[in-house]
Protein backbone atom coordinates (compact mmCIF):
# COMPACT_ATOMS: atom_id res chain seq x y z
CA UNK A 1 0.00 0.00 0.00
CA UNK A 2 1.30 3.41 -0.93
CA UNK A 3 2.18 5.63 2.02
CA UNK A 4 0.22 8.77 1.22
CA UNK A 5 1.58 10.62 4.25
CA UNK A 6 5.26 10.27 3.30
CA UNK A 7 6.77 13.33 1.56
CA UNK A 8 9.73 13.27 -0.80
CA UNK A 9 12.75 15.60 -0.86
CA UNK A 10 13.04 18.33 -3.47
CA UNK A 11 15.92 20.74 -3.89
CA UNK A 12 15.30 24.48 -3.56
CA UNK A 13 16.66 26.13 -6.70
CA UNK A 14 16.12 29.78 -5.82
CA UNK A 15 14.28 32.06 -3.44
CA UNK A 16 12.94 35.39 -4.70
CA UNK A 17 11.68 38.14 -2.42
CA UNK A 18 8.38 39.45 -3.76
CA UNK A 19 7.45 41.85 -0.95
CA UNK A 20 8.51 42.50 2.62
CA UNK A 21 6.57 39.44 3.67
CA UNK A 22 6.30 37.19 0.61
CA UNK A 23 8.90 35.02 -1.03
CA UNK A 24 8.73 32.72 -4.02
CA UNK A 25 10.51 29.40 -3.64
CA UNK A 26 11.51 27.66 -6.85
CA UNK A 27 11.78 23.94 -6.23
CA UNK A 28 13.08 21.16 -8.49
CA UNK A 29 10.15 19.08 -9.67
CA UNK A 30 9.55 16.73 -12.57
CA UNK A 31 5.95 15.99 -13.27
CA UNK A 32 2.61 17.41 -14.21
CA UNK A 33 0.58 19.79 -12.12
CA UNK A 34 -2.75 21.24 -13.13
CA UNK A 35 -3.73 24.89 -12.72
CA UNK A 36 -4.98 25.47 -9.19
CA UNK A 37 -3.47 22.39 -7.55
CA UNK A 38 -1.44 22.51 -4.36
CA UNK A 39 1.23 20.59 -2.47
CA UNK A 40 1.65 19.78 1.19
CA UNK A 41 4.91 21.51 2.07
CA UNK A 42 6.87 20.51 5.13
CA UNK A 43 7.76 23.56 7.09
CA UNK A 44 10.87 22.78 9.15
CA UNK A 45 10.25 22.53 12.90
CA UNK A 46 6.52 22.97 12.46
CA UNK A 47 4.67 20.58 10.18
CA UNK A 48 2.85 20.71 6.91
CA UNK A 49 0.73 23.30 5.19
CA UNK A 50 -1.06 23.29 1.83
CA UNK A 51 0.58 25.73 -0.59
CA UNK A 52 -0.66 26.43 -4.12
CA UNK A 53 1.63 26.14 -7.09
CA UNK A 54 2.24 29.75 -8.17
CA UNK A 55 4.47 29.06 -11.13
CA UNK A 56 5.89 26.22 -13.16
CA UNK A 57 8.42 25.56 -15.85
CA UNK A 58 10.74 22.91 -17.20
CA UNK A 59 12.01 20.92 -14.18
CA UNK A 60 10.63 23.19 -11.48
CA UNK A 61 7.55 24.53 -9.72
CA UNK A 62 7.16 27.61 -7.57
CA UNK A 63 5.41 28.39 -4.32
CA UNK A 64 4.78 31.88 -3.05
CA UNK A 65 4.72 31.87 0.72
CA UNK A 66 3.80 34.61 3.13
CA UNK A 67 6.04 35.03 6.13
CA UNK A 68 3.43 35.26 8.77
CA UNK A 69 3.09 33.74 12.18
CA UNK A 70 4.70 30.66 13.60
CA UNK A 71 3.59 28.26 10.92
CA UNK A 72 5.48 29.40 7.87
CA UNK A 73 8.44 31.02 9.59
CA UNK A 74 10.56 27.88 9.58
CA UNK A 75 10.69 27.78 5.83
CA UNK A 76 12.46 31.12 5.64
CA UNK A 77 15.55 29.66 7.27
CA UNK A 78 16.11 27.54 4.17
CA UNK A 79 18.59 28.44 1.44
CA UNK A 80 18.89 27.49 -2.22
CA UNK A 81 20.45 24.02 -2.30
CA UNK A 82 18.58 22.92 0.80
CA UNK A 83 15.98 20.21 0.59
CA UNK A 84 12.27 20.85 0.98
CA UNK A 85 10.01 17.92 1.78
CA UNK A 86 6.71 17.90 -0.03
CA UNK A 87 3.96 15.67 -1.31
CA UNK A 88 1.37 16.23 -3.98
CA UNK A 89 0.04 17.60 -6.21
CA UNK A 90 -3.38 17.51 -4.55
CA UNK A 91 -6.81 18.79 -5.33
CA UNK A 92 -8.73 19.39 -8.51
CA UNK A 93 -7.97 22.26 -10.86
CA UNK A 94 -9.60 25.05 -12.77
CA UNK A 95 -11.51 23.48 -15.69
CA UNK A 96 -9.26 24.86 -18.42
CA UNK A 97 -11.02 22.84 -21.10
CA UNK A 98 -14.27 24.61 -20.26
CA UNK A 99 -12.47 27.96 -20.49
CA UNK A 100 -11.22 27.33 -24.02
CA UNK A 101 -12.58 29.58 -26.75
CA UNK A 102 -14.36 31.76 -24.21
CA UNK A 103 -13.69 35.05 -22.50
CA UNK A 104 -12.10 34.76 -19.08
CA UNK A 105 -12.32 37.11 -16.12
CA UNK A 106 -9.91 36.60 -13.22
CA UNK A 107 -10.45 38.50 -10.00
CA UNK A 108 -7.87 37.97 -7.29
CA UNK A 109 -6.83 39.55 -4.05
CA UNK A 110 -3.38 39.48 -2.45
CA UNK A 111 -1.77 36.05 -2.37
CA UNK A 112 -4.92 34.81 -4.12
CA UNK A 113 -3.03 35.64 -7.27
CA UNK A 114 -0.64 32.74 -6.65
CA UNK A 115 -3.09 29.88 -7.42
CA UNK A 116 -4.33 31.56 -10.63
CA UNK A 117 -0.96 32.64 -12.01
CA UNK A 118 -0.23 29.42 -13.92
CA UNK A 119 -3.73 29.61 -15.37
CA UNK A 120 -3.07 33.18 -16.51
CA UNK A 121 0.27 32.19 -17.99
CA UNK A 122 -1.38 29.34 -19.84
CA UNK A 123 -3.65 31.72 -21.72
CA UNK A 124 -0.80 34.21 -22.10
CA UNK A 125 1.33 31.55 -23.76
CA UNK A 126 -1.57 30.08 -25.75
CA UNK A 127 -3.70 33.05 -26.80
CA UNK A 128 -5.20 30.90 -29.54
CA UNK A 129 -6.93 28.77 -26.86
CA UNK A 130 -8.87 31.62 -25.29
CA UNK A 131 -10.55 34.84 -26.24
CA UNK A 132 -10.14 37.92 -24.10
CA UNK A 133 -8.70 37.80 -20.58
CA UNK A 134 -9.69 40.41 -18.02
CA UNK A 135 -7.68 40.50 -14.81
CA UNK A 136 -8.53 42.48 -11.70
CA UNK A 137 -5.82 42.06 -9.09
CA UNK A 138 -6.15 43.83 -5.80
CA UNK A 139 -3.52 44.42 -3.15
CA UNK A 140 -3.63 46.14 0.21
CA UNK A 141 -1.03 48.77 -0.65
CA UNK A 142 1.98 49.25 -2.88
CA UNK A 143 4.22 47.34 -0.49
CA UNK A 144 2.02 44.26 -0.86
CA UNK A 145 2.03 44.06 -4.64
CA UNK A 146 3.07 40.64 -5.86
CA UNK A 147 4.40 39.49 -9.22
CA UNK A 148 5.01 43.05 -10.46
CA UNK A 149 6.93 41.92 -13.54
CA UNK A 150 4.33 39.41 -14.55
CA UNK A 151 1.51 41.88 -14.11
CA UNK A 152 3.39 44.17 -16.47
CA UNK A 153 3.83 41.27 -18.87
CA UNK A 154 0.12 40.41 -18.73
CA UNK A 155 -0.75 43.96 -19.69
CA UNK A 156 0.68 43.13 -23.12
CA UNK A 157 -2.13 40.70 -23.92
CA UNK A 158 -4.78 41.00 -21.19
CA UNK A 159 -7.04 43.75 -19.92
CA UNK A 160 -5.48 44.30 -16.52
CA UNK A 161 -6.85 46.38 -13.66
CA UNK A 162 -4.37 46.42 -10.78
CA UNK A 163 -5.79 48.13 -7.72
CA UNK A 164 -4.78 49.09 -4.20
CA UNK A 165 -7.38 48.85 -1.46
CA UNK A 166 -7.20 52.38 -0.12
CA UNK A 167 -4.15 54.14 -1.43
CA UNK A 168 -3.09 55.42 -4.80
CA UNK A 169 0.01 54.87 -6.86
CA UNK A 170 0.97 55.34 -10.48
CA UNK A 171 -0.32 52.48 -12.63
CA UNK A 172 -2.86 51.39 -10.00
CA UNK A 173 -6.51 52.03 -9.50
CA UNK A 174 -7.80 52.64 -6.00
CA UNK A 175 -10.43 50.58 -4.20
CA UNK A 176 -11.36 46.99 -3.49
CA UNK A 177 -11.61 44.59 -6.42
CA UNK A 178 -15.39 44.72 -6.09
CA UNK A 179 -15.32 48.40 -7.05
CA UNK A 180 -13.96 47.50 -10.49
CA UNK A 181 -16.13 44.54 -11.42
CA UNK A 182 -18.57 46.92 -13.11
CA UNK A 183 -15.86 47.75 -15.64
CA UNK A 184 -15.87 44.25 -17.06
CA UNK A 185 -17.89 44.23 -20.30
CA UNK A 186 -19.92 41.13 -19.41
CA UNK A 187 -22.61 42.16 -21.88
CA UNK A 188 -20.18 42.02 -24.78
CA UNK A 189 -19.14 38.45 -24.00
CA UNK A 190 -20.77 35.60 -25.84
CA UNK A 191 -19.70 32.98 -23.33
CA UNK A 192 -17.31 33.45 -20.46
CA UNK A 193 -16.08 32.30 -17.05
CA UNK A 194 -15.11 34.20 -13.94
CA UNK A 195 -12.40 32.99 -11.56
CA UNK A 196 -12.28 34.54 -8.11
CA UNK A 197 -9.49 33.77 -5.63
CA UNK A 198 -8.59 35.55 -2.46
CA UNK A 199 -9.50 35.81 1.22
CA UNK A 200 -12.95 34.34 2.03
CA UNK A 201 -14.60 37.72 2.56
CA UNK A 202 -13.21 39.09 -0.70
CA UNK A 203 -14.41 36.02 -2.61
CA UNK A 204 -17.87 36.26 -1.15
CA UNK A 205 -18.35 39.93 -1.99
CA UNK A 206 -16.71 39.67 -5.40
CA UNK A 207 -19.03 36.79 -6.30
CA UNK A 208 -22.09 38.70 -5.08
CA UNK A 209 -20.97 41.69 -7.10
CA UNK A 210 -20.57 39.56 -10.21
CA UNK A 211 -24.02 38.08 -9.74
CA UNK A 212 -25.33 41.62 -9.35
CA UNK A 213 -23.86 42.38 -12.76
CA UNK A 214 -25.76 39.50 -14.26
CA UNK A 215 -23.10 36.80 -14.11
CA UNK A 216 -24.77 33.40 -13.77
CA UNK A 217 -23.58 31.59 -10.64
CA UNK A 218 -22.40 28.56 -12.56
CA UNK A 219 -20.00 30.73 -14.58
CA UNK A 220 -18.09 31.63 -11.43
CA UNK A 221 -15.22 29.54 -10.04
CA UNK A 222 -13.56 30.01 -6.66
CA UNK A 223 -10.66 28.36 -4.86
CA UNK A 224 -10.71 27.75 -1.12
CA UNK A 225 -7.81 28.09 1.24
CA UNK A 226 -8.26 25.81 4.24
CA UNK A 227 -6.13 24.41 6.97
CA UNK A 228 -5.08 20.87 6.06
CA UNK A 229 -2.92 18.43 7.98
CA UNK A 230 -3.21 15.63 5.46
CA UNK A 231 -4.74 16.81 2.16
CA UNK A 232 -5.96 13.24 1.58
CA UNK A 233 -9.36 13.20 3.29
CA UNK A 234 -8.36 12.02 6.76
CA UNK A 235 -7.40 14.84 9.13
CA UNK A 236 -10.79 16.59 8.99
CA UNK A 237 -9.51 20.17 9.11
CA UNK A 238 -10.74 21.25 5.68
CA UNK A 239 -14.19 19.65 5.88
CA UNK A 240 -17.16 21.92 5.24
CA UNK A 241 -20.48 20.12 5.75
CA UNK A 242 -20.22 16.87 3.75
CA UNK A 243 -17.42 18.21 1.55
CA UNK A 244 -13.69 17.67 1.92
CA UNK A 245 -11.95 20.62 0.27
CA UNK A 246 -8.80 18.54 -0.24
CA UNK A 247 -10.64 15.83 -2.15
CA UNK A 248 -13.38 17.72 -3.97
CA UNK A 249 -11.68 21.15 -4.14
CA UNK A 250 -9.96 23.46 -3.69
CA UNK A 251 -11.65 24.73 -6.88
CA UNK A 252 -15.42 24.86 -6.73
CA UNK A 253 -18.06 26.16 -8.99
CA UNK A 254 -19.74 29.00 -7.11
CA UNK A 255 -23.15 27.35 -7.41
CA UNK A 256 -21.76 24.64 -5.16
CA UNK A 257 -19.38 26.79 -3.12
CA UNK A 258 -22.23 28.97 -1.94
CA UNK A 259 -23.87 25.89 -0.43
CA UNK A 260 -20.76 25.16 1.67
CA UNK A 261 -21.47 26.77 4.99
CA UNK A 262 -18.99 27.17 7.81
Amino acid sequence: MENIMLPSPHKILSIVKETQAEYTFRVAYEGETKHGQFFQLSIPKVGEAPISVSGKGEGYIEFTIRKIGRLTQGIFGLQPGDVLFMRGPYGNAFPVDQFKGKDLVVICGGTGMAPVKTLLNHFYDHPEEGKSVHLICGFKDLGCVLFTEEIEKFKGKFHVIPTLDNSSAPGFETGMVTAHIGKIPFNSFEDYNVVIVGPPVMMRFAALECVKHGVPEDKIWVSFERRMSCAVGKCGHCKINETYVCLEGPVFNYSRARELLD
Binding site: M5, I43, A49, R66, I68, G69, L71, T72, T111, P199, P200, E225, R226, R227, S229, C235, G236, H237, I240, D262
Partner: peptide, 21 residues
Protein backbone atom coordinates in the same frame (compact mmCIF):
# COMPACT_ATOMS: atom_id res chain seq x y z
CA UNK B 1 0.19 12.71 14.00
CA UNK B 2 -1.68 13.67 17.09
CA UNK B 3 -5.42 13.63 17.78
CA UNK B 4 -7.09 16.94 17.19
CA UNK B 5 -10.70 18.04 17.48
CA UNK B 6 -13.17 20.40 15.86
CA UNK B 7 -14.03 21.96 19.23
CA UNK B 8 -10.51 23.35 19.62
CA UNK B 9 -10.30 27.09 18.98
CA UNK B 10 -7.62 26.87 16.28
CA UNK B 11 -8.91 23.81 14.47
CA UNK B 12 -9.57 25.71 11.23
CA UNK B 13 -6.82 28.31 11.49
CA UNK B 14 -4.73 28.46 8.30
CA UNK B 15 -1.03 29.24 8.03
CA UNK B 16 -2.06 32.76 7.08
CA UNK B 17 -4.01 33.11 10.30
CA UNK B 18 -7.56 33.00 8.90
CA UNK B 19 -10.16 31.13 10.89
CA UNK B 20 -13.08 29.46 9.11
CA UNK B 21 -15.25 28.90 12.19
Amino acid sequence: RVWSGCMLEDFTRTAGGALAR
